[in-house]
């Protein structure tokens, strides 16, 4: 069910939510968090809501969408409430802000936060340079950005590093989890040899590739080489970890299937498709404490040596 409330205020929205709950029975039980989505109003807004609705199936939540409209218009708040089939396991409140109100989204969000439940802010597209100092970011226990969807991913990642604060996280980091899991699992098994060198290759503007290199640098405590893509493959292309008995190599050149190569063992192929936003969001909502690993990885970025675009992997 979708209820439109043009030119309204948050008190009316709140009253409407309570009314809907009473009419429809226990619609709002068991919500575990409030997810605030901050975006400019546009076509892509719906994509983000869709992903949040699906993620809500694992983490029942209230979704508040702050959609910033035209700044030149007269100050106005349009609201829309979605419950039931139109909202997954969540209830969605879309707040469309116009005019001067665009700068004061936080004041519209505060009255609608669930009591005593964690708040997660998510900027699915463009994000503030310092999320933890953003007014909505300050309300949140966890702040999710996405460097890969930024107009300038490289700059966005640099911002993440300089502005890191506990509770920050980035979907470019979340997309790496499966890669990291396979690499860590490979090192769980013999031969137990020290890693002497590491090389990561991928698209020039793939922040996930940079973060993977940063993670390896932080944890292997060795400089990591960052190479340009091979054969124009998308995203992360490959990771090579050198050790005495030969390299461990995990590569993905078609964006879908990974190959794990180890000396003396048959090549193993593994599904390693780029993760969609919903899966990443589900993973992010699972933890609300500071991600120390991500922090260390951002630090590790300084240990990454970028190579000039040419050569084959070492």
């Amino acid at each position: 069910m979708i209820i439109d409330m043009p030119t309204t205020n948050t008190a009316k929205v709140n009253a409407k939510i309570v009314e809907l709950r009473q009419q429809g029975g226990a619609v709002a039980l068991g919500r575990v968090l409030t997810l605030v989505i901050v975006t400019d109003d546009g076509e892509k807004t719906e994509e983000a809501i869709e992903a949040a609705n699906e993620a809500s199936r694992e983490h029942p939540c209230r979704v508040i969408v702050v959609a910033r409209g035209a700044r030149e218009a007269a100050a106005r708040l349009d609201a829309q409430i979605r419950v039931g089939g139109d909202a997954g396991a969540s209830e969605v409140v879309v707040l469309r802000l116009y005019g001067e109100l665009v700068e004061h989204g936080d004041t519209c969000v505060i009255p609608l936060l669930l009591p005593d439940a964690p708040v997660v802010a998510w900027w699915p597209f463009e994000s503030p340079d310092k999320p933890s100092e953003d007014r909505i970011g300050q309300l949140a226990h966890r702040r999710i950005t996405d460097a890969a969807t930024d107009k300038d991913p490289v700059r966005a990642l640099a911002c993440r590093r300089s502005s890191y604060s506990d509770g920050d996280t980035d979907l470019a980091w979340t997309r790496l989890t499966q890669w990291r899991a396979y690499l860590a699992a490979a090192l769980d098994l013999p031969p137990y040899e020290e890693i002497t060198g590491a090389t990561v290759s991928g698209e020039a503007d793939s922040p996930s590739t940079d973060l993977l290199a940063g993670w390896l640098a932080a944890y292997l405590k060795i400089p990591v080489r960052r190479l340009p893509p091979q054969r124009n493959a998308p995203g992360i292309n490959s990771v090579v970890l050198e050790r005495k008995s030969g390299p461990v190599e995990l590569s993905r050149l078609d964006g879908k299937v990974g190959t794990l190569r180890q000396p003396g063992q048959p090549d193993r192929r593994v599904a390693l498709a780029r993760r969609n936003v919903k899966d990443c969001l589900v993973e992010e909502l699972r933890r609300l404490d500071p991600d120390e690993i991500y922090e260390a990885t951002l630090e590790g970025l300084t240990q990454v040596e970028a190579d000039a675009p040419e050569g084959a992997p070492a």
Binding site: T174, T177, R180, A181, Y182, L183, A184, A185, L187, D188, L189, Y192, I195, L216, Y219, L220, K221, R268, E283, R287, D291, E292, I293
Partner: peptide, 23 residues
Amino acid sequence: MTTWQNPLRDERDKRLPRIAGPC
């Protein structure tokens, strides 16, 4: 040799699932 400590494992890293070894 002392017991192997996988450098990529960190107990604080709750994202990393445990994947079964080859089997």
